[in-house]
Structure formats: structure tokens, C-alpha cells
Amino acid sequence: MTRTGTPPRRTLRVLLAGGALALALTSCGAPTAEEAAAPGPGGGAAAETGPHASHAPSGGPAGAASGQVPSSHVHGVGVNPADGLVYVATHDGLFRFDATGPVRVGGVNDLMGFTVAGPDHFYASGHPGPGSDLPNPLGLVESTDAGATWQPLSRQRESDFHTLTASDAGVLGFDGTLRASPDGETWTELPMPAAPFSLAVSPDGSTVLGTTEDGPLRSQDAGRTWERVAAAPLLMLVDWADGATVVGLTPDGRTAVSADAGLTWELRGEVGGRPQALSASGEGDDLSVVAVGDAMVLTSADGGRTY
């Protein structure tokens, strides 16, 4: 999650000048066993999706060019506060969307987990691609140059984090076990009642939401204890927009927004099809959403009501 303030609203004007961002994606392949257990309509299986991804600038991203994402699997989406552009983490590496469309950033690695921690500062996990000298699995890797290069931090050849989220307090990841790290190097195991499909942590690190096939779980003590959110719809993806506002996507692509840190939710517009990745920022009239739906990357500048 991005923790460096909100970029200027000029990004929205750049985006809307070309209309809503709609980027065609190639279809996803067969899901893994973990992905097949993800929450689907009515509690069933859902399509493969990306993990929690970090915040978009207020009003939406600057990268408004349309085009196909050159990968069959999208695992995450985030916006880099250093340039205001959308970054998409995929089975075939990281892609930045600028005025010319998608541009590969760095090597061809399968980025199963991905989150933006600050300007040009990313965390990821997954598997090395052809020609990569990174270990398999990657464990937690870090980039401080917007994905151009990655440095192993910890748990190399041990962890493939399929969902990652970051806050001012550190990093949370799930590799079959929920793990927390203040520095990306030392880890503490945390209990969780069910395997999360995605994780999202509040900016200060105190409140965590995790989506499961039985509904979202919520922790108010940084992941040490959990409760089910009875008033929430079934959610596949969640992201914190600010300290109190959370955006979620249901398995059938409806947008849900909470103004009280995930306790109660309002259903809004639809992204269309099954969601794959999500990023949110701002609050109230300035709530902005970037969502990867079925074959599209979409943005909403009105809090998820229209895309």
C-alpha cells in the first residue's frame, strides 16, 4: 500500500481526456488449487485473481492508453506515486501503462504477489522466469526502482506469497501461513481461521481484512485475532483507500465500499465479469478505484459507481 500522500488531481484530467481506461486482457489459464478455493458466487470457486494491490492517486491514474495486457494471468495492480502510472503484475512479469500502452518493466518473472509500498518501492513474490538468476520460489523480493530490478530480502526458496500487503508497520503475506514482518527480513507467524484469497491492511497497520470463501475476516490487532464481518457481502478483493475507507469487489464484479473500516458496506457499480485485481485511494467524492475485471482494466473516479 502506498503511504506517501495523494498525487495531484491532474491525473484524473489526463485519464478522462481519453475516456475511461479499458485495456483488453488475454484470458486466464486454469487456476491453481489455491485459486480454485477462492470465493466465488454463492461461496463457490472463482477465477484467478491478484492480491491486494496498492493505492491509486486521487482521481485515477495518468496512464490512459488502451491496449492488450501481454499476459494470460494478472495477479495484481497498483499505482506508483512517483509517476502516477498503473503497474500490472502478471505471470509474465511487470508492465507499466504509459501514454503508448503497456511497457515491460524488468525481467520476466511470475509475480504471484505484488504491492506498492511507496514511490518506486514495490514488494513481490512468486517464481523466476526464463533467464532469471532469482531463487525459486522468490520469497519476498523488493524493488526500489519501480520494478526494473529486484533484490531478495527473505524466505528465498521457502515462500511463494500469493497475496501481499504493506503498511507503515511492515509487510503481511500468506504462503499457506499468515506471516508478518516489520522489515521484510524477520517474520512472525500469525493465526488465521481460514486461508485468505486476498489481504489488505490499513495505512497504520492496525486493521487487516482478508477475503475467504465464507466471507471477509477482520482483525483489529494487526492480524493476531480475527472476527467474521457479518454485515459484509461475499468479497473476493479488498483495498484500503484511506484510514477508514475500504473498497471491495464481489466475485461477480460488483463494487462494495465501506466507510467504517470494513464493518458495513454499500454496493455500487460493476466492473463486469470476474475481478482479478484492485486498487483504491481517496475518500468521499474523491474516492478513486482501479480494477482489473473480466478482460478489462477499468477506472472509476466516482467511488466505484461507474467505470
Rank of each mutant, 00 (worst) to 15 (best):
G170H: 13
D242M: 02
T250G: 03
A244N: 14
P7F: 10
T211M: 03
P216R: 00
A231R: 10
L16Q: 10
H91G: 05
T6W: 08
L237N: 04
V105E: 06
A65E: 08
P41H: 01
S279I: 02
A65W: 04
L140R: 03
V271R: 11
L21E: 04
P57N: 11
L178Q: 00
V257P: 06
L138E: 03
T26W: 15
A180H: 03
R9F: 13
L298C: 07
H52R: 10
A301Y: 02
A65K: 10
R13E: 15
V108W: 14
T115W: 04
L267D: 11
V201H: 01
A45F: 01
M236G: 15
L199W: 10
A200P: 04
T165L: 10
A37K: 10
R157W: 12
P128C: 10
G170L: 10
L217N: 00
G43S: 11
H127G: 07
G78Q: 00
P233K: 04
R254S: 13
D83E: 09
G284L: 11
V103G: 01
A222I: 03
V271C: 09
S125I: 13
T90Q: 00
H162V: 09
A56F: 09
V69M: 06
L25N: 02
L12S: 08
G43L: 05
V103N: 07
S143C: 06
D204R: 09
T188S: 15
S154G: 08
A232H: 01
L111W: 06
P41A: 06
G205K: 03
G184C: 01
A56M: 05
G253P: 06
R10D: 14
G50T: 03
Q151R: 12
A259Y: 11
T250A: 08
H127A: 07
T6A: 11
S159E: 02
A148L: 12
T211V: 07
P193L: 09
N80D: 15
H127L: 09
A166H: 14
H52E: 15
G139D: 09
V238F: 05
H127D: 09
D183F: 07
L209A: 04
T115R: 08
G19E: 11
A53M: 08
Q276S: 13
V290T: 12
G18W: 13
E34L: 14
T2H: 15
W240N: 05
S206G: 13
R155I: 08
W187F: 13
T115I: 08
S27Y: 06
A241P: 13
